[in-house]
Structures are given as structure tokens and as C-alpha cells.
Simulated assay, not measured.
Amino acid sequence: MSRKFRRSYRFAVRTSLYITLFLCLLMSILYMVEIHFDFTGLLIFAILCYFFSFFIIQYRVERFIYRRIKKIYDNVSLLDSTTLSPSQVTTDMSSLTREVEKFAQDKKLEIETLKVREAYRKEFMGNVSHELKTPLFTVQGYILTLLDGAHKDKAVRKKYLQRANKGVERLIYIVRDLDMITKLETGDLHLHYETFNIVELIQASFDLLEMKAAKKNITLTFDMDYEEPVWVWADRERIQQVLTNLIVNSIKYGKKGGTTEISIENLIKNKVIVRVTDNGEGIEKENIPRLFERFYRVDKSGSRKEGGSGLGLSIVKHILEAHGEKIYVESVFGVGSEFSFTMEKSKKVPETATLPEIS
């Protein structure tokens, strides 16, 4: 406090000194020229004193405030000192106020973002721990049982080793998917673009998952017969992974005896949109914004029974974003869901193009 008072005293002393010196000098000049004051002379003297006092105080105040504010700008490195100039500084300190308000708003947004990221990090670490813990404990349990003497029984030994192997496969599956997401996020996973027929690729995915769908009596079908190929430009292997994950998801949450239908529509001149529609359980509205988070599950108990790493939709989103494409979700709880994504049309058709066979 004493330091602040000394500064203000020093400012007041210097300002008073300047005014006093001016008045003394003016009086000396008037005395030397032996000017006798009448009313007009006194009025002129008062006006001169007033204007000089006004300008010297205004100049001193602005200079005093500017120096104090400049020090604040220098100390707070995040404030933009280029926006500060002596001509802008007034007694209301509007320049500093604007910068401080902007600084405070930016810091508030930064803090809120960090809080969201921290909550996500905690949830993600908890999910990773849970996903890895189950197969690890399973494998450990079977191995300890074998070590305790169960390995002497050939039938038990084979059964337990097979179950332990399934646990290891699940661990590999989770780690592989996490590695893929990390590479997609960092740009380390390079895409190999080529022209291919998306209708043919969908049919190949249907053939691959036919037996899985048959277990729940779910029909995999197109919305219509595509007699002409639909040529697109993308990484064929990654797009097949997208289709496989979406179809598996529709089977996993589909109703017995239901249908998974895929349609391909022209969106704009150089884009098509692929829709994967099912008449399964559907998704509640509050769950939709979080569907593409790692390990996020709508129905945790049901998904555990069905298996999977919990990373399928997250991988789908990252693959499509790597292609510069979008994925959309529409769902009515109890009615069904539709996942759709865009793809770029190929500008040229392969010379060896053949029509797909639609079963």
C-alpha cells in the first residue's frame, strides 16, 4: 500500500510543481512588463491558468495511466500489447477492460474444455481398465487352474486352454482396434485410394456375415436390385471395415427375424450416400451424441453378451473422417436405426468393370 501511495504522491507533486512553475513564470513576466490588472486582464490570466492546468493534468494523467497499464500488459503475456497505444488510454481504461474481458473469457473456455477432457479421460481410462480386466482375469483363472493340477486331465486341459485362447484373442482384438484408432487420429495409417464398385463390396460383406445373421434369422438385403455398378473412390479395405462394423452392429442389436437393409443414393454431383437401416431395438435420443466414443455402450449388459471390443463405431467414424466424409445417425427407440455415410464418386470407370451379382 505504501508503495502505491508514494507513486500517487509523486504524480501529484510533479503535476503541482509544473502548474506552480507556470504560474510563477507567468506572474514574473507580467510583473516585469508592469502590467496592471483590470477585469479583462484578470479574466485572461484566469483563462490561461485554466487551460494550462487542464492540459498539464490531462497529459500527466494519461501518461501515468498508460505506464501502469503497459506494465500490466508486459506482466500478463497473454494480453495483446499491440492493441495498446497512448492515444487510446483514457481514465476509464477501456482498452485494458476489453483485453482483460477477452482474456477472462478465453481462460474460462479453456478451463471448461479441460474439465470436459479430464472427465472424458477418467471415463476412458475406466472403460479401458474394465474391458482389459475381464479377459485378463479369465485367462489368469484358467491358467492358475491348470497349474493347480487340472493339466493332468487331458479333456479339462484342452477345454481350459481353448477358453484361455479366446480371452487372449479378445485382448488382441481390443489392442488392435485401439492401435488403429490411434494411427487414424495421428495420421500414421495411410489410405490406399482406388476405384471400386461399392455394390460389389456390400454384397461381399453380406456373404461374410451371412452365417452370423442367420443365427438371429436376420435378413441382409439391398433396398432394390442394382443392375449398374456404383463406382466410388476410396480405400477399399477400410470401407469394407466400415460396412462390416455397421452390419455387425445392426445384427447385434437387431430383433430376431428382422432385416438389415442397405441402400445407395446419389447425394450431390460427386457424392453418394450409403444407408444401413435396421428394424432393431433403436437408440434412445440421449445416447446418440455419444455413440462414437471409445467403449461407449448403449446397452452394456447386452453388448457384453454379444462380445466385441466396444470400438467398432469409433473406428467407423475415424475411417470416414480420414476420407474427409461424414457419418449420420437417425434412430427411434423401439423402431430401428439408420446409419448413413457419404462417399466420393469415382471420376473414371475401370476398363475391366463387370456387373455385380445380386443374390
Score class of each variant (00 low, 15 high):
Pro229Gln: 09
Glu325Ser: 10
Ile111Met: 08
Ser129Phe: 09
Glu118Gln: 14
Gly308Met: 06
Leu48Cys: 11
Arg170Glu: 13
Ser309Arg: 04
Met1Trp: 10
Ser301Trp: 08
Asn197Ile: 06
Ser28Pro: 03
Thr342Gln: 07
Val298Ser: 06
Val128Lys: 01
Ile69Asn: 03
Lys285Asp: 12
Glu228Arg: 14
Leu78Cys: 09
Met27Phe: 09
Val61Tyr: 01
Glu321Ser: 09
Phe51Asn: 10
Asp225Gly: 05
Leu209Trp: 07
Val316Trp: 03
Ser346Ile: 02
Leu201Lys: 12
Ile69Gly: 03
Thr91Arg: 13
Asn279Val: 00
Glu284Ile: 01
Arg117Lys: 15
Lys133Trp: 06
Val335Met: 05
Pro289Cys: 09
Ile69Gln: 06
Phe206Asp: 04
Arg68Cys: 02
Arg10Gly: 09
Val139Gln: 01
Ile319Gly: 10
Glu123Gln: 11
Gly302Asp: 07
Lys102Leu: 12
Phe5Arg: 15
Arg3Val: 03
Asn279Lys: 06
Glu265Asn: 14
Glu321Tyr: 11
Phe295Cys: 04
Gly254Asn: 02
Ile47Thr: 12
Met180Arg: 13
Gly308Ser: 05
Gly258Pro: 02
Glu112Val: 05
Ser303Gln: 13
Lys122Ile: 09
Ile218Arg: 00
Leu144Phe: 04
Phe222Ser: 12
Glu325Val: 07
Phe39Asp: 11
Lys107Gln: 13
Ile358Tyr: 11
Val199Arg: 04
Leu191Trp: 07
Arg6Cys: 03
His130Leu: 12
Asp225Trp: 13
Leu161Ala: 06
Thr186Ser: 15
Ile44Val: 12
Lys108Pro: 05
Glu344Ile: 08
Leu26Pro: 01
Leu313Cys: 05
Arg297Pro: 03
Lys152Cys: 04
Arg163Met: 09
Glu131Lys: 09
Tyr31Lys: 10
Ile268His: 14
Glu99Arg: 05
Ser346Arg: 05
Ala119Met: 09
Glu293Met: 10
Ile273Ser: 07
Val335Glu: 14
Thr277His: 07
Trp233Gln: 14
Phe54Gly: 02
Trp231Val: 11
Met125His: 03
Ser16Glu: 04
Phe45Thr: 11
Ile69Ser: 06
Lys154Gly: 08
Leu109Ala: 10
Gln162Cys: 01
Lys115Val: 13
Tyr160Ser: 08
Asp299Gly: 09
Val242Gln: 07
Thr352Ile: 07
Arg14His: 07
Tyr193Gln: 04
